[in-house]
């Protein structure tokens, strides 16, 4: 809008930009599938994911933003009660091995945070992310992995079972598989990174043996940055 008062003082026309300060909605999705329960030592991935998500939610809520979940279960609201509701939500009982984000109730121009190990179906994840990006949602993908999943320190004849026991893979020589597994993991990470870049989101991989505070730092800064 033309700012007539200012423009009158000079010859040019000045335009006034107004900002409307409104609380940002940040919608979280933490993967609660059984694969997140894997913990080789220390905390499990789910615990770390939930810790990071809740910490950011607390920070945001203290700053006055609205936090909620990305599916229809908890619409974004401000207040302390929302945090405990989020905490309850993050502790749902897992029902299947790998999950993908539910991005049903994303408000446009809000922020989405997906914290998971992203071992699930990539196509579904891509669909959710692009659907969210179509709604002008800015987001961050935080991949939480276990150090064993990153280094694959196994050898010998091994029978791998998933956390719920449904999936199985037998290997005669696990150290021979290492290179292949690591390359598959790397491909997945590259795919995630390119997906995030393509929609303007942030992506980061965090392992549970790193300090949680470093993951939190990244997550907080990722939410600050909007292109």
């Amino acid at each position: 809008m033309i700012d007539w008062r200012r423009s009158a003082r000079a010859d040019d026309r000045y335009v006034r930009e107004n900002e409307w300060q409104a609380a940002q909605s940040v919608q979280f999705w933490v993967d609660t599938s059984t694969s997140m329960l894997f913990a080789s030592q220390g905390v499990s991935k789910h615990q770390r994911a939930a810790t990071l998500a809740l910490s950011v939610a607390i920070l945001l809520s203290n700053a006055g933003e609205k936090v909620g979940s990305s599916d229809k279960l908890l619409p974004a609201k401000s207040g302390r009660a929302q945090i405990s509701a989020l905490a309850h939500l993050f502790n749902r009982t897992p029902d299947h091995d790998f999950g993908s984000p539910q991005a049903d109730d994303l408000k446009p121009h809000s922020i989405a945070v997906f914290v998971s190990d992203f071992f699930g179906d990539f196509a579904e994840l891509e669909r959710s992310v692009t659907a969210a990006a179509d709604q002008q949602v800015y987001g961050a993908l935080l991949m939480v992995l276990d150090p064993q999943e990153v280094s694959f320190p196994f050898s010998g004849r091994t029978l791998f079972e998933s956390m719920s026991g449904d999936l199985r893979h037998e290997s005669q020589k696990a150290d021979g598989l290492r290179a292949k597994y690591l390359s598959v993991l790397h491909d997945r990470q590259v795919a995630l990174a390119s997906l995030a870049q393509s929609v303007g989101w942030q992506f980061h991989c965090h392992t549970t043996d790193q300090l949680a505070s470093s993951g939190l730092m990244w997550l907080y800064q990722a939410l600050e940055y909007r292109r």
Binding site: S35, M36, L37, F38, K45, D97, F98, D117, F119, G120, D146, Q148, E149, F154, G156, R157, T158, L159, F160, E161, S162, M163, L167, R168, H169, E170, S171, Q172, K173, G176, L177, K180, Y181, V184, L185, R188
Partner: peptide, 27 residues
């Protein structure tokens, strides 16, 4: 008679599903 395999719980089994061993004689 080969030696018995170790059973492990692993979170990233999904990634392993499509992989095969190089050495097929290792049993």
């Amino acid at each position: 008679v080969p030696p018995a395999p170790t059973r492990r719980r692993f979170g990233g089994v999904a990634l392993l599903l499509r992989l095969t061993d190089d050495d097929l004689q290792a049993d």
